[in-house]
């Protein structure tokens, strides 16, 4: 299993480090031909305006949309969430419209309003997630097929999932938080081997015994 990290700009090295921590092979992706054969893709934090420019210039849009259409997990953090949104408040054109949400960029204000907070993310268990929000976006609207994974105390939505697309307004990769990446890895192994369940297989499976 190989998980790609879009490396055109941003904190892709931190995502690759997190993947290494959980023992999953991560590869950086800058060109379209590097998307083929990936089991999943992470879109890191960074500047979404810059990522838009580089995704367009190097023709990364179609291969990524195709990867998502095949069911491989795509996970975006912060700018990555903006890149994945179907609508961006203020009328900017969407980039990879895979998530039926509307996001507002820099929703908390400028850098002086960047903050850290502990969040409940029920899908990851009882232990809270330490969220690092840097000039972070917020989800203003969620479509009917979108599950809300986490909210701030005031109810604003900061983590969502729609089938194989996952996004957070904060940065698990800056907080030593590995559970989102584990979830992506589990989704990737389900995608690769759907007949075999969750991917946590303590014993050799029938298919591997057949020498597949």
């Amino acid at each position: 299993m190989k998980i790609g990290v879009l490396a055109v700009q941003g904190d892709f090295a931190e995502h690759l480090d997190t993947l290494e921590t959980i023992g999953v092979e991560g590869v950086d992706v800058r060109r379209p031909e590097q998307v083929a054969g990936l089991s999943g893709l992470i879109l890191p934090g960074g500047e979404s305006t810059t990522m838009r420019r580089l995704i367009d210039r190097w023709g990364l849009r179609d291969p990524i949309l195709e990867l998502a259409a095949h069911g491989a997990p795509i996970f975006g953090t912060c700018a990555g969430m903006i890149v994945l949104s179907r609508e961006i408040a203020g009328g900017e054109a969407p980039i990879l419209p895979l998530l039926d949400v509307t996001v507002a960029r820099n929703a908390f204000g400028r850098q002086l309003e960047s903050f850290e907070a502990d969040l409940q993310v029920p899908v990851l268990g009882d232990q809270s997630v330490h969220g690092v929000f840097i000039r972070a976006p917020i989800v203003e609207r969620t479509g009917p097929d979108v599950d809300v994974l986490a909210r701030l105390d005031d109810g604003r939505v900061v983590a969502v999932r729609q089938r194989n697309i996952l996004a957070t307004a904060f940065h698990p990769e800056l907080a030593g938080e590995t559970r989102f990446h584990r979830l992506v890895a589990a989704m990737a192994s389900e995608h690769e081997d759907p007949g075999e369940g969750s991917g946590r297989r303590p014993y050799p499976t029938r298919r591997s015994r057949l020498g597949r």
């Binding site: 941003g10 904190d11 892709f12 934090g45 850098q111 903050f115 850290e116 502990d118 105390d153 800056l174």
Partner: peptide, 22 residues
């Protein structure tokens, strides 16, 4: 929920978001 602004993590974190950029 306690929130903390302008921490060392958010200060150096913004620079981490600028990496690979101009």
């Amino acid at each position: 929920m306690t929130t903390e602004t302008s921490t060392w993590t958010t200060k150096k974190g913004l620079a981490q978001m600028l990496k690979g950029g101009v």
